[in-house]
Design a protein around this nucleic acid. Structure first.
Length: 590
RNA sequence: GGGGACGUAGUUCAGCUGGUUAGAACGCAUGCCUGUCACGCAUGAGGUCGCGGGUUCGAGUCCCGUCGUCCCCGCCA
């Protein structure tokens, strides 16, 4: 830029700068050529200011301006002047002033952009990702990544205040069984051996506790080679947190205060403490382990009287949902709910309406009025209410597990909330879901798998259940949920070797196999491991929620497509045969 | 792996039951224009209808396959 130095940002010029000589630099957002007078909107990361090229001020600047096009990069030297009243533009922050150019410097030319940069112009994601460096200039991405930066600063400040050290952990590490598919990195020095990129720094953070660091956190990239979704990228960021000698409620408090600080960036006041909801209750009432609690529509598990379930040919365990004052639900609306219930896995659906002339329900015919009345009374129905009922078939072979019934109830609840307009925007409904089961039964493999991970501690009172009834054992594991989205999860870890051995037994892992898989961690736990526990927060999801984006790609500078491709640099890509030779790798024919 | 939606000009889209030269808006180029700010006016350029095959006298349109993007299920903490 020669001897020139930028003195101001475009977006900060105000009437108070009037008559000052300034040098601004940026991109040409728009050009309006009136012939002998040219207006340029000059844009940088702070905003837009209007530059006037007037041949009466500078012939040379005006002549150069005739060649200038959109997205050219310019330096402009000129004088800030207040605009005449009738030429003020109230739509932009700098609209009361403009820069009268004395000279302009074309720092770079630019091809016509591949798509319009106006905020609000609709553009296919494909084009945006292909030309991400242009897309990033748009106000939306500038805003989102700025927010992300400020939020990251808040995390570091907050964790530091609470005694947490940010410590880096390796990206080139070892593949661990269980969990997601690993991204593998071949070793040049040991052919046939591979590093794995971490799915999370789980093991390392536990080792840092064993190593005596007491409190650790990291804003860290994690990698999982699984199919993608709107809220899942192959590489994503976690706020990883671990503490020694943990009290669960102290950890919750630290995280709640962190959320408070983050949302303060949006001028949102967060209510603390967050409610805590046992997993079983979440499943019963909301049919989800990540419930949106910003509205009612609570389900209740009931046992149908034997006579009734017999006549209906359903299993006795069922669920009901009382919709207060929704008695106006039409037959066709109820049919739609029924379709949804069936589609989401319920075998049986019915309802009871309270009408002027009494109870109205297809059940009356099937099981008689008194039975229906009993149900209505049990549900606490009053006039104008409607009661939805779902259940499962009676026959043993296709008995749907209670879990599936819960899932159906959750799907119905969300759909109803959507239709009834119960989901308010601008609400921030945090909830801790606690007391997750230790184990989940894998129906395919007919064995228990760890619901969180195999180093999660059971609740003290559930220790005996490891032997007697593993399915009923609850873990000291928890998720943080915001507006029905899981934004974090963690647990208090196991530090007692004997309990760990019991868990391995349930998982069907012999001592030998466990050694083989997790040897170094088990050894570390035997070297004097303090009690420890922590949490990992899904950073991309949190930022997306804060930014009001429904897709985490909008808060990631260079994201990948749903098929894990980087459209900008065209990765993944083939490599030279020499590179493969060095790694001792041959590509198999398809 | 499965399901759904989409793919036409640089961009966003229209194109009906198959029918003559594939359109619009914005953008772009050229010219005119001294108070515009989504400047205006005039003129113009710009198309492998994703790709391959098939049906047909004739395909952007119908069929099959394939590739890509998005969303969902499976998968994944």
């Amino acid at each position: 830029m020669g001897d020139w130095k930028r003195t101001h940002y475009c977006g900060e010029l105000r009437p108070s700068h009037a008559r000052q000589k300034v040098f601004v630099a940026g991109w040409v957002d728009r050009r309006r050529d009136l012939g002998n007078l040219i207006f340029l909107d000059l844009r940088d990361h702070t905003g837009i200011v209007q530059v006037v090229l007037n041949p009466e001020i500078s012939r040379e600047a005006h002549d150069k301006g005739e060649q200038v096009r959109g997205e050219y990069v310019l330096g402009v030297e000129g004088e800030v002047v207040s605009r005449a009243k009738h030429t003020v533009n109230p739509q932009i922050a700098t609209g009361e002033v403009e820069v009268q150019a004395q000279s302009i410097l074309v720092l770079n030319e630019a091809k016509t952009p591949p798509f319009p940069l106006d905020d609000g112009a609709r553009t296919s994601e494909e084009a945006r990702l292909r030309y991400r460096y242009v897309d990033l200039r748009r106000a939306r991405m500038q805003r989102n990544l700025r927010l992300r930066h400020q939020a990251s600063l808040a995390v570091r400040e907050h964790m530091n205040e609470h005694g947490f050290l940010e410590i880096e952990t390796p990206f080139l590490t070892r593949s661990t069984p269980e969990g997601a598919r690993d991204y593998l990195v071949p070793s040049r020095l040991r052919h046939g051996h591979f590093y794995a990129l971490p799915q999370s720094p789980q093991l390392f953070k536990q080792l840092l506790m064993v190593g005596g660091f007491d409190r650790y956190f990291q804003i860290v990239r994690c990698f999982r080679d699984e199919d993608l979704r709107a809220d899942r990228q192959p590489e994503f960021t976690q706020i990883d947190v671990e503490m020694a000698f943990p009290q669960r409620d102290e950890l919750f408090d630290i995280i709640e205060r962190l959320m408070e600080k983050l949302f303060a960036l949006l001028d949102v006041k967060v209510e603390r403490p967050f409610p805590r909801l046992p997993y079983d209750e979440a499943m019963e009432r909301y049919g989800s382990d990540k419930p949106h609690i910003g509205f009612g529509l609570d389900w209740k598990r009931i046992a149908l009287p034997e006579a009734m379930s017999g006549k209906l040919n359903t299993a006795p365990s069922a669920k009901m949902l009382r919709l207060a004052e929704q008695g106006h639900f039409s037959r066709s609306q109820l049919d739609k709910v029924q379709d949804l219930a069936k589609a989401s896995g319920a075998d049986w659906f019915s309802y009871i309406k309270t009408a002027d002339k009494g109870l109205q329900s297809p059940l009356v015919k099937a099981v008689g009025e008194p039975a229906v009345e009993t149900l209505a009374r049990e549900a606490g129905m009053t006039s104008g209410d409607i009661l939805l009922l779902i259940g499962t078939k009676a026959d043993g072979a296709s008995v749907m597990k209670a879990r599936h019934l819960d899932e159906a109830s959750g799907a119905i609840r969300l759909e109803l909330a959507e239709r009834l307009g119960l989901i308010k925007s601008g609400g921030w409904n945090f909830v801790w879901v606690v007391d997750f089961p230790m184990f989940e039964h894998n129906e395919k493999e007919k064995r228990f798998v760890a619901m969180h991970h195999p180093f999660t501690s059971p609740r003290e009172e559930d220790l005996p259940k490891l032997e007697t009834d593993p399915a009923a054992a609850k873990a000291r594991a928890y998720d943080l949920v915001l507006n029905g989205q899981e934004i974090g999860g963690g647990s208090i870890r196991m530090h007692r070797r004997d309990v760990q051995a019991g868990v391995f037994r349930v998982l069907g892992l012999t001592e030998e196999k466990a050694r083989e898989r997790f040897g170094f961690l088990l050894e570390a736990l035997e070297s004097g491991a303090p009690p420890h526990g922590g949490i990992a927060l899904g950073w991309d999801r949190i930022i997306a929620l804060m930014a009001g984006e429904s897709n985490i790609r909008e808060v990631i500078a260079f994201p990948k497509t749903a098929s894990a491709v980087d459209l900008m640099c065209d990765a993944p890509a083939p490599v030279d045969p020499e590179q493969l030779d060095e790694l001792g790798i041959k590509i198999a024919d398809p």
